[in-house]
């Protein structure tokens, strides 16, 4: 039987982390440049595909200072993607940890996110991880495991909104394909 007491006490880990970050982040004496902030953001992993970062994914659209407030503009990948709120929490946690006190996260849906915004480094990391990167042709170039080009679609939808399920007919391994949108 699961010990509910333990489970509940462990549940708000993210919140605890957020609190800790607030305490650790010493107040900054001067505003970091937007380039510095971009660098901080570039090491925050995507919560569902942790091999790529938020900047690899291309969902950070803008970073700017509005007076003493840092404004970070984020675009959702899919309108119902449950990772969106975790992503916002991760950004907030990281930036607070770097001492940012006044922070606004702005949601922007236009122009809509497109897989064209994935960086080349992000595409390569996806492939190494076993997820075929998106292609305008509408399907994977080859199996991310054995590189065979003999692949077939199993389903238009996969384990997260951004992926489809494919299979290699040579090595017979199923794999995720990052949908091109």
């Amino acid at each position: 039987m699961v010990d509910q007491t333990t489970k509940f006490s462990e549940a708000p880990d993210l919140l605890k982390e957020l609190e800790r970050a607030k305490v650790q982040g010493a107040p900054l004496t001067e505003k970091p440049t937007v380039e510095t902030v971009w660098a901080w953001l570039s090491v925050i992993p995507d919560p569902e595909i942790p091999v790529i970062s938020l900047t690899d994914l291309g969902i950070i659209r803008d970073v700017e200072w509005d007076g003493d407030t840092l404004v970070v503009t984020v675009t959702p990948t899919y309108s119902g993607c449950p990772a969106t709120s975790i992503i916002n929490l991760d950004i907030e946690t990281a930036l607070r940890g770097h001492g940012i006190e006044n922070l606004t996260l702005k949601r922007q849906i236009s122009p809509p996110w497109t897989t064209d915004w994935l960086t080349d480094a992000g595409r390569a990391k996806l492939e190494d991880y076993g997820i075929a990167p998106p292609r305008a042709a509408g399907g994977p170039q080859h199996c991310p495991h054995c590189k065979s080009t003999r692949v077939e679609k199993i389903s238009q939808f996969g384990s997260t909104p951004c992926k489809a399920q494919w299979r290699c007919t040579d090595c017979l391994e199923p794999f995720d394909y990052f949908k091109c949108i």
Binding site: P76, Y78, S79, G80, C81, P82, I109, I154, S155, Q156, F157, G158, S159, P161, Q165
Partner: peptide, 20 residues
């Protein structure tokens, strides 16, 4: 299983659009 996942994804998109 594949259809279950596809239906859940479709529902998720629709609920996301509802929020907007």
């Amino acid at each position: 299983l594949e259809e279950d996942i596809a239906l859940a994804n479709t529902a998720l998109d629709l609920i996301g659009q509802t929020q907007l």
